[in-house]
Design a protein around this nucleic acid. Structure first.
Lengths: 329, 329
DNA sequence: ATTCGTGATGTAATCGATTACAATAATTTT
DNA sequence: AAAATTATTGTAATCGATTACATCACGAAT
């Protein structure tokens, strides 16, 4: 790979002139520009981002932190981020943190070292303290999950309201024994969705029963199955289940079927996220739709603004309850 | 963010000594090491990758090119890559190329510019010519999809044999009218799997009927539905379907159900990839299992070897036909 | 006491770009 | 035609690290 020196030599000019051509400075003569451009062409030269970044302290790269690539919830968000980034001349790099602090540390360092210009964090398990510290010096946005006590701008939905509506929908269908499959309440979204669940129950004077609330640390299908297995073992089986994630709900559906029970006749089921697979199950899954693509776009917009030192405000986007077969009697 | 100069000043030593401490050179006195380490501590200093990379021409970053993050097929492979990379002191960056040459170009440049040390490409739609050109100078490995005419080392499975076995399994069950849902035959895997399909039919003297071969450009569920709709419209309906991807098969299953037909009684179904969803459908999906995690590990191992200038040979891993409910009569 | 050897540290070049400032060439003004 | 002005281009410092080589200090050998 040729460097700027060789181009300069070949074109018979100084490196400064080559750099000016590269950066489209208007002061360069058409003739010299041509010379340089031919030299670039002939040497197949491409400027080194390393040298450039070191000098400019800018990489035009955005980091997107996700806990796990296997969660389909993130795919549409990422598409939104990517489209917006590219429109603005940025590129994104996906970072699968596996909720591992050590990996996170590496990605944090990439920003400190100017290898990236900013971070969009979607990892609920991120070290909030570290993230807040980093955010004092570097552009950071949180997407979906955020720190209520922190000062980092975020884009999300009203999780409590969404859960409330989902459970209210079940209550309106006549259900009185409604279970909750929740994830780890270390996470804000889990706490908020539980609050929404309880809010709905209280509003209709239904008791909140611990035996119908199941917590799981993982979001994979199998954990939904496991959750449902437990719930079916309770002395009084629930007639409806609200799950805080589609993947868990799909696992639950599988388990319900395995017990020769039917959805929605025996047990109604509501998920959360509207992942594409939720429309492929039989029955199709009632779920809460988050505007994922828009969320991604908004997050990217906010980050880019922040990089340019503009002020940004947190955003709460609308959600929607998508009623499908799993709650249609 | 402090730099090495400031640390040197604070510690009362030269930058060379600081660098020596950072790189654990044995020649530094315990006393000076301590001085430097305290200074690093106090200034909260972290060495800049940019400066280091520029000097060392090494980033210890690997690029992983995937066409789309939404395809669950890649998740386990990526886990394998990531685990292996980290064990060897490398980190990975996921690049969602969207099969877009312009985006690819950016990622190719990152390697040219030493922002990354090598590439694992999993994009079937990658510009093979460019990739081959790049591979003459930079470490590149192909995973899953590869260029049969090129010289880039790859890791994959025997796609033709796998397809042959899948279709033979259907024939052994007594099926004579077997359809194929294939993806774009620009891709090698699609051509190979079709070859396996035809090989099995020929071996058992079954005619190859164009009406039962459907091509689709996308792998999302909806395209599987669309494919199946077409196949059900043919004058003579197939009694079995082999789909080159689980996502397409799951879409097909949905469509079959929508027509009030049953799997496997009316139509048997075989997918490919053993994605985690394929065990959540009802009935569960017979599919071809690729050793995805191992594939990822192998690819990462090969790439790291290549970065260290060792010779690497292409690898063909074993596959397995996983028989589940969708072909159990 | 002088010389030598060894180990610890410092000096300065280097990687590949950008850019302030200097220098030169081209043009206009008088 | 000489001076003044302006348009191009070149020189060299800079970003933050690494490292070959130079230097220095100190103890051992003679």
């Amino acid at each position: 790979m040729a460097n700027i020196q060789e181009v300069a030599q070949k074109a018979g000019v100084s490196v400064a002139t080559v750099s000016r051509v590269l950066n489209q400075h208007p002061t360069v003569t058409a003739k010299t520009r041509l010379k340089v451009e031919t030299a670039i062409e002939e040497l197949n030269y491409e400027p080194s981002m390393l040298g450039r970044n070191l000098r400019n302290s800018e990489s035009r790269l955005l980091l997107v932190l996700i806990p796990s690539i296997s969660n389909p919830f993130y795919t549409e968000i990422i598409n939104g981020i990517e489209d917006t980034a590219i429109t603005n001349g940025y590129n994104i790099l996906l970072c699968d943190t596996d909720s591992n602090p050590q990996r996170e540390h590496i990605y944090f360092n990439m920003v400190k070292n100017k290898l990236a210009d900013g971070i969009i964090s979607m990892d609920p398990a991120v070290d909030m303290e570290k993230l807040n510290g980093l955010a004092m010096q570097y552009p950071i946005i949180q997407c979906s999950e955020y720190d209520e006590k922190g000062t980092i701008p975020y884009v999300t939905i009203d999780n409590q309201l969404a859960a409330y509506r989902a459970v209210k929908h079940l209550i309106k269908l006549g259900h009185k024994k409604i279970a909750l499959i929740n994830s780890d309440e270390r996470f804000l979204y889990a706490r908020e969705r539980r609050a929404g669940y309880e809010q709905a129950l209280r509003e209709f004077n239904l008791p909140i029963q611990e035996k119908w609330i199941y917590h799981t640390n993982h979001l994979e299908f199998e954990f939904g199955q496991q959750a449902m297995r437990k719930l079916l073992q309770t002395d009084e089986k629930p007639t409806a289940v609200f799950s805080v994630s589609d993947t868990l709900a799909i696992g639950a559906l599988k388990e319900i079927n395995a017990h020769e029970l039917n959805v929605p006749e025996d047990i109604a089921l509501v998920g959360f996220d509207k992942i594409s697979f939720s429309n492929m199950t039989n029955p199709t899954l009632t779920t809460v739709s988050q505007p994922m693509y828009k969320m991604g776009c908004t997050a990217a917009d906010m980050l880019i603004k922040k990089i340019h030192n503009k002020d940004v405000e947190s955003v709460i986007l609308d959600h929607e309850l998508v009623i499908r077969e799993s709650t249609m009697g």
